[in-house]
Simulated scan of single mutants.
Amino acid sequence: MTVSLHTITLNDGTIVPKLAYGTGTKWGKRNAVNPDAINPELVESILTALRAGFSHIDTAEGYGTEPEVGLAVGQYLKETGKPRSSVFITTKVDFGPDSVVTIKQVWRDLEELVDAKLTRSIGVSNWRIQNQTKVNQIEFHAYNQGLKLREFADKEIGTTIAAYGPLQPLIHFAETGRVQAVVNKIAERKGDGVTGSQVLLAWGWAVGTIQITTSSGTLDLVLTDDEVEEISNAGAEYPNQRKFAVGKVFDD
């Protein structure tokens, strides 16, 4: 995996925008009365994100937001004249423990999609060390850094971590530990209207992850090594804090 200012290159050569607009946490239809109904507010939200400069959209079969993503991307490409390849879409196939299909069969089917150039890269979500591939999407933030998982992913097999919930230290865990105070201090020092959220996203990029959020971030914000370490150390004081009860607890 290699990292540039705006992108991450996976071990198969795929170039991925390192800031993604998420459609799961806020917009997911898991408990909706009519999950098949199109949510026009979500379509407009995705369009706004694309117009603002997002070029990576995150969705999933389980979120129920794939139709809205398709409508928004289609409208955006029509109004801008840009090619489909200008927008990177990450989605996820539901595969539960009660499925009659084996993971090996699912993986072979996904590989066929890559061979047919119907998808660019394949990966997994919420997997632990013993289950790794090219991309692993997990809850990741300063209070849940998954150090052993990241080390294994990077050094052993070249897997890229895609982080959902990257701003939870400023939301769900705002009263926990020192992270909020540290990132706000760094934001104030950076000046020019930089926010704590932007600093936290920049920290996530600095440690080599794709950040999935509904908040905007400046891809040009670069932290010093000392600032990255300061945030990492502040988060490490309260490790393994998880907001989302998805999958198993990760080895840290």
Rank of each mutant, 00 (worst) to 15 (best):
M1A: 15
S4T: 15
I15T: 14
I15Y: 02
V16L: 13
K18T: 11
A20E: 00
Y21M: 04
T25Q: 12
E44F: 11
T48P: 00
H56N: 13
L71V: 10
Q75V: 06
E79L: 05
R84H: 10
R84L: 07
V87T: 03
F88V: 05
T91G: 05
K92F: 11
V93D: 00
F95H: 14
P97R: 05
P97K: 00
V100N: 12
I103R: 07
K104L: 11
Q105V: 13
E111L: 14
L113D: 00
K117I: 02
V124K: 08
S125W: 05
S125C: 13
I129F: 01
I129Y: 01
N131G: 12
V135E: 01
V135W: 04
N136K: 07
Q137I: 10
E139S: 08
A142L: 06
Q145H: 13
R150K: 08
E151K: 15
A153K: 02
E156R: 13
G165C: 08
L170T: 00
T176Y: 05
G177C: 03
V179L: 08
Q180W: 00
Q180T: 14
E188N: 10
G191I: 05
G193W: 02
Q211E: 14
I212K: 04
T214C: 02
S215A: 15
L219Q: 01
D220E: 15
L223E: 09
L223V: 10
E229W: 09
E229N: 13
S232P: 01
S232F: 06
N233P: 05
A236L: 14
P239Q: 10
R242H: 11
K243R: 15
K243N: 13
A245Q: 12
G247M: 08
K248P: 04
V249C: 06
D252E: 15
